[in-house]
Amino acid sequence: MTDKFISIEGIARRYPGANGDATTVFENLWLSMARGEFGCVIGHSGCGKTTVLNILAGLDEPSAGTVIVDGQAIEGTSLDRAVIFQSHALLPWRTVLGNVAYAVSSKWRKWDRARVKTHAQKFIDLVGLSGSEHKHPSELSGGMKQRVGIARALSIMPKIMLMDEPFSALDALTRGTLQDEVRRICLETGQTTFMITHDVDEAIFLADRIFLMTNGPGARLAEIVENPLPKDRGRIDLHRHPYYYALRNHIVDFLVSRSKSFATDVPDHDARHVPTVRPGVGDPVIVSPPRVVEPNAAQSAAR
């Protein structure tokens, strides 16, 4: 994979402190993603995951660095980058169809009503909400609301889909079903997706690559974990795969201990050459010499 579709280049986020000195949430963060890739960020609260996502969405601005998407530095929000919010963020005075149609008519301003409706309906059907178009969000369950959020994001056919812990407020059963749907849709449409999660299993099931972030303040991207599980993995027999536990243990180990001690353990960590790890049978192996992320240059990653 040589394509560098999203390239986060040395971004930082600092907040001015009470007595003049700034608190650094994270700094010098380098990260790139290929077209059609599903990337997942895992880290503890306060490591700035949501800030990274908001910067990608254009809702927040980095204190330093830039983000390049499809060869262009991003500036503010864009219809190319759709966000699925943790709290679904549906407009409660609009129906399901109204919410999706609002997004559709924002993207294609000249479309007439009927065309907007047909297009919106297509995506409502895609997320399995046919028959509920005329309900208001208050009449829907949490899972259905998030489906509407997904339909709204997909309906504008974005280049990138950004998901901020989209399923964390749902019960386990609903979460599972929605994860299946999201995986199916992303595989079918080849959607590039960047997701934040707390849930290790969610990351293992959905992501092609998992980005591990250390604890904030001063959080950094410690490691990129390549998912060794097959593309056609299913949620039900996921845990039977021989690589599953190696992968899971690797991530959990990181979250439990290494995320805290990383800064002292690896003092010479190079933010631009973050090692890629591919856990499998036996000890995890570093498959690539740390990937070199160079600004705006095509690079080949060992995959």
């Binding site: 254009g58 809702l59 929000t77 966000v83 919010f85 963020a89 997004a103 924002s106 504008i156």
Partner: peptide, 14 residues
């Protein structure tokens, strides 16, 4: 007005 609704409008370039 809830920030998230404003953010929805912002991401849709309204």
């Amino acid at each position: 007005v809830r920030k998230e609704w404003i953010n929805v409008a912002r991401t849709l370039e309204v």
